[in-house]
């Protein structure tokens, strides 16, 4: 039981990631594939953010007045880990960039083939 309580969050992240993975490889509509890619990226970002969480009363990674001007030694366990937050800020913005380029390619394919279904596009190419 302790094992399940310690690990079930990871299993939910893996479930989300596999939902996105299934949408990417099984759906034939291009917009559905892009939605699956977005879910996949969000699940990975959620996993990284959850690494920085500390149980036991840790607060946000913003220094309080006493720590900022008190001059005493700062207790590390009192603050969350700020490094994954920074890396995931970058990852969110990059995910929006990939979403924009993917949608631009999808719109271009619709202009040429007048459909968004992958099998119909493959049939039109042949």
């Amino acid at each position: 039981m302790d094992f399940i309580i310690a690990k079930y969050n990871y299993w939910i992240y893996i479930t989300l990631m596999m939902i996105g993975f299934y949408a990417m490889i099984a759906k034939t509509n291009l917009i559905k594939k892009i939605i699956g890619m977005n879910i996949f990226q969000t699940a990975i970002i959620l996993f990284f953010v959850s690494i920085s969480y500390k149980r036991g009363g840790a607060t946000l990674p913003i220094l309080t007045d006493a720590d900022a001007h008190g001059g005493h030694v700062i207790d590390v366990a009192q603050y969350l880990n700020p490094l994954p937050h920074v890396l995931m800020l970058t990852a969110i913005v990059v995910s929006i960039a990939t979403l924009g380029v993917a949608l631009a390619i999808a719109i271009m394919m619709y202009r040429k083939y007048h459909t968004l279904e992958e099998d119909e596009i493959l049939k039109a190419i042949k």
Partner: peptide, 15 residues
């Protein structure tokens, strides 16, 4: 995930 540190562990290697 069996080998991962427990969720929210303050002593995990990442922290």
């Amino acid at each position: 995930t069996i080998d991962m540190p427990a969720w929210g562990d303050p002593d995990s290697p990442a922290s």
